[in-house]
């Protein structure tokens, strides 16, 4: 699949933002007063920046408001609702923490749950697609929630939970690579099933439908990134999980510099992992073009 920058920025930043907001809602990072303002603003900024980025790849953004209409069947629509409701429900929690110095625990619980539900909905936009076997797997939502919880814990300055979650994220990423690599074969889709000609014998593309490229090929058949897939996998695991864990382990507790460094490292790894998530994913339509 084509790794569109807007979609990568959307999923990484809004995932981090909603993950962080979940911890704030639960009161696990419980600043009050002026500090609370900056902390909540950071969470909202990541979440909203991600959501704004998601509109950049729309070819016809003036109809974007209609995306709220199909929550009964569409995960993308549900994601939009979950995001807006989360931001609205958490607003009084943030405002009371900032202006009334009211701690947000329990009162923020529904918002925290909604924040994680938003990340789940985002992951389901991809997980639901049977056409992309690598995504159509239980580990995709686990991976998205893993990134949200890990990034949120790092930002919230929760030293030991963050370290544990980093190690869990490394394991989830490694598992997603192993499981993902065999998904296309497991899906049973081949050029033979795609054409129905397997009953005769082995099928090969003899001539494509056109000499140039087209929307489908640009969007679904992306082979450039797969060449460096192994290196990028290592970069993703090391930067998103191992290095932040190491920084938090050796830095003195509560050091803002350590948190900032860990977040920057984590985001670098998250962007690499998300880029690979798209670039490595094979769409079954590629079979018709003799590609994958």
């Amino acid at each position: 699949m084509h790794p569109a920058p807007s979609v990568i920025v959307f999923t990484v930043l809004s995932g981090l933002g909603f993950g962080f907001l979940a911890y704030l809602g639960l009161g696990l990072a419980a600043p009050v007063g002026a500090t609370a303002f900056w902390v909540w603003a950071l969470g909202y900024a990541f979440a909203v920046a991600g959501l704004m980025a998601s509109t950049l790849h729309l070819q016809n953004p003036r109809n974007a408001w209609r995306a709220f209409s199909q929550w009964r069947s569409s995960w993308l629509s549900r994601e939009g609702w979950a995001a807006v409701i989360t931001l609205v429900v958490l607003a009084p929690v943030a405002l009371t923490a900032i202006f009334l110095r009211f701690p947000s625990a329990t009162f923020g619980l529904p918002g925290a749950a909604l924040a994680l539900a938003t990340v789940y909905c985002t992951s389901m936009i991809y997980t639901q697609l049977r056409t992309v076997p690598r995504w159509n797997l239980w580990i995709t939502p686990v991976m998205f929630l893993g990134f949200a919880l890990t990034g949120g814990a790092i930002l919230a300055g929760l030293k030991w939970p963050a370290i544990v979650l980093c190690l869990a994220l490394a394991a989830v990423l490694a598992a997603s690579f192993v499981l993902g690599d065999r998904r296309l074969a497991e899906s049973g889709s081949t050029l033979e099933s795609a054409t129905g000609l397997g009953r005769i014998g082995k099928v090969r593309l003899y001539e494509g439908p056109h000499t140039g490229t087209n929307y489908l090929m640009r969007e679904m058949i992306h082979v450039v990134g797969r060449r460096h897939a192994q290196k990028l996998r290592v970069i993703a695991v090391v930067f998103a999980a191992l290095l932040p864990a190491l920084v938090l382990l050796i830095a003195p507790g509560g050091s803002l510099w350590a948190i900032a460094l860990a977040v920057v490292l984590h985001l670098t790894g998250a962007f690499a992992a998300r880029w690979l998530f798209f670039a490595e994913a094979e769409h079954v339509v590629g079979l018709y073009y003799g590609a994958r």
Binding site: N60, R130, T131, M220, H283
Partner: peptide, 17 residues
């Protein structure tokens, strides 16, 4: 709105933006 998700969901490449 031109998000392209339907084209992703189609296994046959029947939809083009």
């Amino acid at each position: 709105m031109g998000c392209g998700l339907c084209a992703w969901a189609c296994p046959y490449g029947a939809r083009e933006m």
